Amino acid sequence: MTINIQKSFQQQERGTLYLVATPIGNLEDITFRAVKTLKEADLVAAEDTRQTRKLLTHFEISTRLVSYHEHNKQASGPELVRLMEEGQTVALVSDAGMPAISDPGSELAALAIEHGIPVVPIPGANAALSALIMSGLPTDRFHFVGFLPRDRKAVQETLDEVKGLKATLLFYESPHRVAKTLEAMAGKLGDRRVALVRELTKRYEEAVRGTISECLAYLEEHPAQGEYCLVVEGSEGSGALQEEGEWWTELAPEEHVYYYERQQHSRKDSIKLAAMDRKIPKRELYNQLL
């Protein structure tokens, strides 16, 4: 591997790839520098051109808009690099927040670097970090996971990979999957403290803080709405389950449920958590307790 050294602001014949942060909710999230960069770029490459066009119109930006997303990156990426090699500047944006995080922008950045094109960040709002700092959980170490896989087995494998980390864990999740994701976390990580953060920087911004079981109970009464950031405490937190492996195997069903009741969980939530541990339906555990 050849070392790569970038001097971002030295004059050069090639163009530049600017990674421009856009609002995550409130339009005032955008920075003056971001607006200036979008106005001065030769092209704005967007994940969703319809969404970005609304932003450009609001700030009276007339820069040419092109599409770059997961489904056209193989063709669009090399073409954008070719234009930058000819001296044009490209401002890459995602639908919200920092590009190249949980989107194909990272691949365009890598391709540009491979071709000797400067990659310059224009920092701004980021949902995961915003959720972290308002969560009340430790911020000295954190690990970004992003969206969990769709496949149930892959979800379990991913949670196995991170369950021993001492760092606070950051996830993204859609509203129709957030409850299932929390249930999977309870089974693999234990009943840790968590913050469910949604609608960041918008009018209905909300943070629900508590243990995983408490947040699951809350969602039963208040159905999930909007995109979520899940902030989960690390393996050494006060609510994190410290036991390794299937620690409950020597416990009778009633003792297993009582373990969670001693941690101030309701009877209902204790049964739900014990059923998750045992990987059986709640109804089956109810029957065993009769």
Score class of each variant (00 low, 15 high):
T63S: 07
G245E: 03
A195E: 01
I30G: 06
Q51R: 12
F171Q: 01
G245S: 09
L27M: 12
Q74C: 03
L169G: 01
S174A: 15
A91H: 10
T201K: 01
T89G: 06
S76T: 08
E107Y: 12
T201R: 02
G87D: 06
K54D: 05
R198F: 04
T22V: 14
H256Y: 00
S102F: 03
E254F: 11
H69A: 04
L108C: 05
E255H: 09
S266C: 04
G97F: 02
S130P: 00
M98E: 00
H222Y: 14
R50D: 14
S76P: 00
Q88R: 08
E107I: 03
I122L: 06
F59K: 09
T16L: 05
G245A: 05
G239V: 01
L65V: 07
S266D: 11
I212T: 02
A186R: 10
F147Q: 08
S266K: 12
A131R: 00
Q88D: 08
K166W: 01
S94V: 01
G190V: 02
E254A: 13
R150C: 04
R192K: 10
A207E: 09
T52Y: 02
E60R: 14
Q225M: 10
E70T: 07
V35I: 15
E254M: 10
V90W: 08
K163A: 13
G187W: 14
L285G: 03
Y260V: 04
D42E: 14
K202C: 01
A217F: 07
P175H: 06
A186T: 05
H176D: 07
F32I: 14
G25S: 07
L19A: 03
R53F: 06
L132F: 00
Q225D: 10
V231K: 12
